[in-house]
């Protein structure tokens, strides 16, 4: 049962990542301004990669392969990791704006990498036990 949920979760999140990744790339190439979707070619590429990992997982689920869960799990990890990276970068941007006395708005920080990572993080918390097995502190 939990596996079916995870498969669907991976498929939905994967489609969202893929779609918004496309939009970012399109708006970077065509200078189209969209709300909450920054024009960023490489940023879009990253979203596409995460989407591809999640969708690969969903596909394997659909084929009845156990490996699907592995891809969805790692997709969730990547989603959270890049969400954190983007948030960190946005926080630094805010700090810089304060130091250099420039304008800054919270809207700049609301990008797909961040709001999709919120969904990813929900998945991470829901299945968090799988993520800590066998990991060793160096």
């Amino acid at each position: 049962m939990s596996n079916v949920i995870k498969g669907v979760f991976g498929a939905v999140l994967g489609v969202l990542y893929g779609g918004l990744g496309m939009l970012q790339i399109v708006s970077a190439v065509t200078y189209l301004a969209l709300p909450f979707v920054p024009a960023s070619f490489f940023g879009g590429f990253v979203l596409l990669v995460i989407g591809a990992v999640l969708l690969t997982g969903a596909r394997k689920f659909a084929q009845g392969l156990d490996e699907g869960v592995v891809f969805v799990n790692v997709g969730i990890l990547l989603s959270v990791a890049f969400g954190a990276v983007t948030l960190l970068a946005a926080g630094a941007g805010a700090l810089e704006a304060v130091i250099a006395e420039e304008a800054w708005s919270i809207a700049d920080a609301i990008t797909p990498a961040v709001y999709l990572a919120v969904i990813g993080a929900a998945g991470f918390l829901a299945w968090c036990r799988t993520f800590f097995r066998g990991l060793v502190a160096a």
């Binding site: 990276v85 960190l88 970068a89 946005a90 630094a92 810089e96 304060v98």
Partner: peptide
């Protein structure tokens, strides 16, 4: 890699 350079730029900026 791209994430790494984003961070290198952005976090260092302030």
């Amino acid at each position: 890699m791209w994430g790494a350079f984003e961070l290198t730029f952005a976090v260092a900026a302030p």
